[in-house]
Amino acid sequence: MIDVTRPTARVLALLELLQGGGTHTAAGLAERLGVDERTVRRYVDHLADLEVPVEAVRGRYGGYRLAPGFRMPPLMLTDEEALAVLLGLVAGQRTGSIAMSAEATGSAAAKVRRVLPKALAARLDALFASTAFTAPEREMPAPEAAVMLRLAEATRQRRPAAISYRDRTGRPSRRTLHPYGLVAHSGRWYVTGPDSASGETRTFRLDRIEQVQLVAGTFTVPAGFEPADTVLTSLAGTPWRYEVVIAIRGRAEEVTARLPRGIATVEPDHDGWVLARLRAERLDWLPAVLAGVGMPFVVREPTELRELIRAWASRLTGCATATSPAQALDAWKTE
């Protein structure tokens, strides 16, 4: 059922259904819109008042349809504006940077294409047909659009929001959140702010929020609060299987810049060294990250990481001295 609550929104939703093509029965439209059949007929009259040609088809398989040949007027965008809209939709869908379903982004792009002038649409189609996009490493769960929009409204209006949330173990909870800001990071969306359950500033994944309801009251965001920094710090501090502590020779800002953003917290140690702290479920990806930092380091914990680094370095050395594919494959074998 289409989630619309106001008459105007339902009239537009009716037009959207009819634009999908075919003949729709009054009963079917009423069910999709959440109204009765008499109201559907009234909405059809509204569309007629707007000069949208809706035809009534009589008979056993009758209903309503748009008149053949009806098209929405061309969308008046410059070439650059049209490119910006479609590139954002298509690239976001193919790279996973838009946290919406493929169906939603694909249908939105198709609708924009349909109302573009033919010459411009053809040029844009040629661009996308000849452009390659790298795929995301893994598919990210998409948050509900209604959740995102209601939290954005609460953030802008400084209104508390009651949310239904499921944590990483699937345990449900109900809490009231002061949403200080929304943050998009690595294909996921987060909201951060103090919540009623703990009284502390927390970070929540939007795809785990099932319902949002704005409640009475207002709040003030502390001066200098940076939602993105708070989310990254929170992610770095999430409890995982391994507690990793690495001493690195270098300045804190330099080490932070060389580490992937948001994976670790960096703090001064002594004598020109800093401590990088992070948590992880697996350790096998860390040797390459530490090598990429390009600075002397000492593994404080866990001891398992030292053995992984030794084995990784041994494989690299073997490949560096290999003179044939067979030797390289043999060098890369794990014990």
Rank of each mutant, 00 (worst) to 15 (best):
L290Q: 08
E281D: 15
L305W: 04
L308N: 06
M295R: 15
F297Y: 09
R300W: 06
W273F: 14
G294E: 08
A291Q: 14
D284H: 12
V298I: 14
L286V: 00
W273E: 11
W285H: 15
R279K: 13
E304L: 14
V274Q: 01
P287H: 06
E304N: 12
R282Y: 10
L305M: 04
P296K: 00
R282M: 10
E307G: 07
V299H: 00
A288N: 07
D271G: 08
V274W: 01
P302F: 07
P268E: 06
E301P: 01
L283P: 05
A276D: 04
R277Y: 12
G292P: 08
E307K: 12
V299Y: 06
P287Y: 13
P296R: 03
E304C: 12
E281F: 01
L308A: 01
L308D: 03
E281H: 09
E301L: 11
L286N: 02
P296C: 12
D284S: 10
E304G: 12
G292N: 13
L283Q: 05
L290C: 01
L305K: 00
G292K: 05
E307P: 00
A280D: 02
E281P: 02
W273C: 10
D269C: 10
L283A: 00
G294P: 08
E307C: 06
G294H: 10
A288W: 11
P296H: 02
A280W: 02
V293S: 04
D269I: 09
L286M: 03
L283K: 04
V289I: 15
R279T: 11
R306A: 10
R282D: 12
D284M: 11
V289H: 08
M295Y: 04
A288M: 13
L278Y: 04
A276L: 09
E301R: 14
E281I: 09
P302M: 06
H270D: 14
L308Q: 05
V274T: 00
A276N: 00
W273R: 14
D269R: 13
L275V: 12
E304Q: 15
R300Q: 14
E281L: 03
P302H: 04
D271H: 14
V289G: 00
L305Q: 04
G292H: 08
M295K: 09
V289R: 10
G272K: 08
T303L: 13
R306C: 07
L278A: 05
M295P: 02
W285V: 14
R277S: 14
A288Q: 11
D271E: 15
T303G: 11
A276V: 09
L275R: 11
P296T: 01
